[in-house]
Nucleic acid binder design. Structure first.
Lengths: 281, 281
DNA sequence: TACGATAGAAGTACACCGTACGAGAAATAA
DNA sequence: TTATTTCTCGTACGGTGTACTTCTATCGTA
């Protein structure tokens, strides 16, 4: 929970040009000016001037509390004012460390990507890819708000590159050509993304029902559900769904979520296996 | 583009209790009152009172122009004021036909679901599921904003039920038990969702780069790209990615998008096939 | 010690958002 | 005509992101 400084901004610099940092970013502009000035004065590289003042706020801190807010109260609760309040800071103070809310969102996503554990490759690519998939799923579930953001944001971020790199190393020595390996990894991640999106949708529905009908007794709720099913059946337009429900199968049941996830995952991996050149077990 | 009234609100009624319609929805409340009143007076069902005034606005119209706005200017352009302006109406007029923006979003999603073509089952389940997947993909691409909304909204909507129902009928007579068939369909849809999310992310990145560096000459752009790749390589942290790029493979290349999609799809279908009890071809 | 210079924090203000409320216009039933 | 009901829409409120500005704490330097 404390120091996470294995990565002293080296990768971050890579990212910067593609970040939602608009020209108005005064801090970046300042820094750039100073570097140039210092170069002119022959001071060489390194921190141009030493920092003048101990910063009460840090970018990491901001991103972290933004994530905390999103985790606790959902994506729509993430506002600059709210984050500043949680930090006991002025709203506009955040803008010294971050150019825009968009940049903040990108950095939130990146930080979550960094949470993904990096297990040692075991030599069994199926097992390794499964672990990757499952880890990604739990990370996405821990931060459900990400799903809502992902579709609207660009994709490149240093931590995600790192994760792809790690996943690729899992497939080393299988005789796969590089392009296929890459496609396989992306396909897995893609599947996880879709699966969790779907799951989060279901959970949204559950939450909605809870909010809307939470004050009903269990009997009333059951009656409502039965009445709904009857109405669905009465339309005669959904014979297959009706049959499913008649058999007591709820396609959206939380109990079968893990099962469904594993089903799709195994199917994918089987498909990969069938495409491998030739390999034992 | 004109009348689409194959479905006179019969299914919509099913949906209503789960829609983002809060108690303040005056119209719904009114209608309910009238129905009750009429029942008391023994008038039976049907439109309680004939409509008193020709409505200049209709719900369908509102949803349609909302979709048009989102298609043209993205998800963030969808605001009540903007839609009203495009309809030459007062902003608050919309609220007679729709309880909230959330309901509008749900209805936009539902309407797009209704656009999905319903091809006749061919008897070849692989082909049929592929067609389903590809149709879903192109629909999602035609309305990229959906990806951004989907994760934040509940899932049930009449048209989506209809689509699931149709997909299930595709798998009839394969000897699959109902639950497995359902899981298979959901898995396909899930995969498509993830794939398109990923693709939309890439396109967001492309758009961002275009906006940010669009005024550069091609040579400059190429130089920037080369410099970026060099910096990535220089970190030494991404040997696999570096190797990919060295081979001229861009994982995010638009040219390979269809290929990637088909790869995952075939893998999935192969996985299904391996799980079928026993079946020729 | 005193003194710019400056990194960083924060207040004010503006344009835009969703929408509660209520007043008005239009249309029909009586 | 009048009463009633459907539908439209202007106003206003509290929220949002953020441009611009001002203030302050701290440093290097003399």
């Amino acid at each position: 929970m404390a120091a996470d400084d294995e990565d002293p901004d080296e990768l971050d610099d890579l990212w910067t040009p593609f970040l939602a940092t608009r020209p108005e970013d005064r801090r970046a502009a300042r820094l750039r000016e100073h570097v140039e000035e210092d170069i002119k004065r022959g001071r060489g590289r390194g921190r141009a001037h030493p920092p003048r003042r101990a910063a009460a706020l840090s970018r990491d801190q901001i991103v972290r509390t933004a994530i905390k807010v999103a985790d606790a109260d959902g994506a729509e609760a993430v506002s600059m004012r709210r984050i500043a309040r949680d930090l006991n800071a002025g709203t506009m103070s955040l803008y010294w460390h971050i150019a825009s809310k968009e940049e903040l969102l990108d950095r939130m996503i990146d930080m979550v990507q960094g949470e993904l554990p990096a297990p040692e490759p075991s030599g069994d690519w199926r097992a390794d890819l499964s672990v990757l998939a499952r880890n990604t799923r739990t990370a996405l579930h821990r931060h459900r708000w990400m799903i809502a953001f992902l579709g609207g944001r660009p994709s490149l971020s240093p931590k995600s590159l790192q994760n792809v790199e790690r996943a690729l190393s899992t497939l080393d020595g299988l005789g796969l050509d590089k392009a296929t390996a890459m496609t396989a990894v992306m396909t897995i991640v893609t599947y996880v993304l879709g699966a969790v999106t779907r799951e989060v949708q279901e959970m949204n529905t559950e939450r909605f029902v809870q909010e809307q009908f939470g004050d009903l007794t269990d009997a009333e709720k059951e009656a409502m559900a039965r009445e709904f099913v009857d109405r669905v059946r009465a339309t005669g337009r959904f014979p297959h769904l009706a049959a499913l429900i008649a058999d007591g199968i709820d396609p959206d049941s939380p109990d079968t979520r893990d099962e469904r996830f594993e089903f799709g995952l195994t199917c994918l991996l089987d498909g990969f296996a069938a495409r491998l050149p030739a390999s034992p077990s």
